[in-house]
Design a protein around this nucleic acid. Structure first.
Length: 421
DNA sequence: TCTGGGGTCCTAGGACCC
DNA sequence: TCTGGGGTCCTAGGACCC
């Protein structure tokens, strides 16, 4: 059996932990640049707000109903996630962290007569007591069915946080009641395809014969079908090392000069390279993209992207920045108002790095040490305390909007909560 | 005025090899 | 008149996830 432990309205729940008194009130958390709603509580949903809504279109609803609005603070959410996941890791033998607010737990080690449902209820209770984050738990023979269970647990209080699908009758009942497009692995396109084939519920899909499924679908579709029938086949290995690392942002205000564009790109390189060193890897290639504001039909539009492959895979901020700046020189066009830029590190290698007979750099180890020193200084004295000059001063004209951001309650000593008794 | 960011896997088709 | 067969690697794009 697998369990999936899923936090409810996770980003909102974290904000509620540190802003007491928001229980039962509408809360939303916005994307970067305070653009769209990325998380919302059931109370906010009841007002007609949805995930993905641009907040500026719903100002009147927000103001009229005193919706509590927060900018996103990933540092805070990641720190809290670690606490929640630590509790789970101590409660079961083996876990696979799937996302910031979800974790799969392998329950196969438990004895046949063991009361798993009651045990997981205890875990959920412990998480709530120790972190104040509410979670929903689904338990089933496959991950896809477990995910269904967690949604039932979330939507129906009667389950008291845990929904277990452990018999053929329960499986069929769940498949019959569940929304087809909410099934894990069935996105918009597959949903439309299934509808056009006359399939309207997960149960109808699961009951189709194997040759029918193989005729109409490729590997991912077949896997989902098997999982719905109780046959485990979806792998979610713990991703400890990324194959690619991206940093990109929309700007609070559009920018035009090459100096501004370079400052933004250099800053994103620094962030990517820091993450790269954090996982002990090196990148074989860097890509940079620039784009205009595609919502502004009155302005000339532009998107361009180019890549550079390093002679030897590297994690050196200076080397990567130099390559990225050359790409900007290549793809920058004057007269465009840029809304967004981004940096992608690819061809990431871990461990053995292919050497190059004609490598122009002969002190790679020393240069990596220099970059590591930057990481240490910035860790100790704060982000961007030491940076390359091309990133520009503190004015940061391309700065993203983040007007309702919570302090870093869990990771910055200066942001610790003050409690008055 | 204002519309996010970061990932993974799979497949088909092109280019190339002998 | 007749024009093979069997591979690999790479890439772009699609689909999905949170």
């Amino acid at each position: 059996m697998w369990a999936v432990i899923d936090a409810n309205s996770y980003f909102c729940s974290v904000e509620k932990v540190f802003h007491p008194g928001l229980g039962g009130k509408p809360v939303v958390v916005l994307s970067s640049n305070d653009g769209i709603i990325v998380a919302l509580t059931p109370e906010a949903k009841a007002l007609g707000l949805h995930r993905g809504d641009p907040i500026f279109k719903f100002r009147s609803i927000v103001e009229r109903n005193h919706v509590n609005v927060f900018s996103t603070n990933m540092m805070l959410y990641a720190a809290m996630s670690k606490r929640v996941q630590n509790i789970i890791r101590k409660s079961v033998d083996y876990c696979e962290s799937y996302s910031i607010d979800e974790i799969f737990a392998d329950l196969s080690g438990f004895d046949r007569n063991f009361d798993i449902e009651d045990y997981m209820r205890g875990v959920a209770r412990k998480i709530k007591l120790w972190t104040d984050i509410p979670v929903s738990v689904g338990v089933a023979p496959t991950k896809t069915l477990a995910k269904m269970g967690s949604k039932f647990a979330k939507n129906y209080p009667g389950y008291r946080s845990v929904c277990m699908i452990d018999s053929e009758a329960k499986r069929r009942k769940a498949l019959e009641l569940f929304e087809l497009d909410d099934v894990w692995g069935i996105g918009r396109r597959t949903y439309e395809k299934l509808l056009s084939l006359g399939v309207r519920t997960p149960l109808e899909f699961a009951d189709k014969p194997g040759d029918w499924v193989h005729r109409h679908f490729t590997k991912p579709g077949v896997q989902t079908w098997k999982e719905l029938n109780g046959c485990p086949c979806v792998d979610t290995p713990e991703v400890l090392k990324r194959q690619s690392i991206t940093t990109s942002r929309s700007f609070g205000e559009m920018i035009s000069t090459i100096e501004q564009v370079k400052a933004s790109v250099a800053s994103f390189v620094a962030s990517c390279a820091n993450k790269l060193r954090g996982q002990g890897s090196k990148a074989g290639a860097v890509s940079v993209f620039l784009c205009s504001n595609f919502f502004r039909e009155d302005l000339p539009q532009y998107f361009n992207m180019a890549s550079y492959s390093f002679p030897v895979a590297t994690a050196d901020t200076i080397e990567i920045t130099r390559a990225a700046m050359a790409i900007v020189d290549e793809i920058y066009r004057p007269g465009i108002k840029y809304k967004k830029s981004g940096v992608i590190l690819g061809d990431i290698v871990n461990g053995g790095v292919q050497q190059n007979l004609f490598d122009p750099i002969d002190n790679r180890e020393e240069r990596l040490e220099l970059s590591r020193a930057l990481d240490c200084l910035n860790q100790k004295y704060g982000l961007k305390t030491v940076r390359l000059a091309v990133e520009g001063g503190n004015s940061e004209e391309w700065k993203v909007k983040s007007e309702h951001r919570s302090p870093n309650f869990l990771t910055d000593i200066n942001d610790l909560l003050t409690v008055r008794i």
